[in-house]
Write a protein that binds this DNA or RNA. Sequence first.
DNA 1: TTAATTTATTGCAATATTACGATAAATATT
DNA 2: AATATTTATCGTAATATTGCAATAAATTAA
Lengths: 110, 110
Amino acid sequence: MGLTKTEIFTDQQNEISLFAKVFGHPARVAILQHLFKINSCVCGDLVNEIGLAQPTISQHLKELKHLGLIKGNVEGTSVCYCIHKENWTVMKTIMTEFLNQDLSKSQDCC
Amino acid sequence: MGLTKTEIFTDQQNEISLFAKVFGHPARVAILQHLFKINSCVCGDLVNEIGLAQPTISQHLKELKHLGLIKGNVEGTSVCYCIHKENWTVMKTIMTEFLNQDLSKSQDCC
DNA sequence: TTAATTTATTGCAATATTACGATAAATATT
DNA sequence: AATATTTATCGTAATATTGCAATAAATTAA
């Protein structure tokens, strides 16, 4: 066990959980917030900005990139990361729909 | 290791990641969607609705309850769960603020 | 070419998560 | 009281995640 049974859920449910999972670590939240904050795209500054070792940051960046929420651009020896705007918008639509489910219909049972 | 360094992040970043983490499993997404869908609050029906064993569902419900997103009401031998409306709204505000960060400011680097 | 700089990858240890069988706890029914 | 029903908890196995030292890979500078 220890293995999520993705096959018994809908594609939508799996997609929501995948996006949520990547936001489920404060380092990745911090990375994204920093990429939003600064106009120009920062690269290895993230290692200084956030207090984690370089391989750890690199790993978190990889996960964000893998989900398509950021893109990386090689510039000399360094790599410049930024938010993938189009994909972020798509993700936002999916997550917002989940968060905005109608509360008025559901009765309170307790 | 294997331990998230929460102390180096802001309370806001940790809070966002905690909410996201609980949505980071399709079973919990499915449970929440089902609680939204049906007017009356369902209980152990969730075990049938979702294809996971009863202890597994119970464990997921515990996590959702621990974060305050649902509440449970004992009714005879069964327990009736429902969305905790006030807390859901608070969570929604926090998550929406994170998702709605200003895209127009951030330059594209790639 | 050699050294310096920056990022990615590998390998590994520590911890967390997922899932479920077994069983306990609580209440309802007979 | 004894039994049935429902949910929670415990224990445990399998897998995933987190973090970092060591090192590789890629590019630039001297």
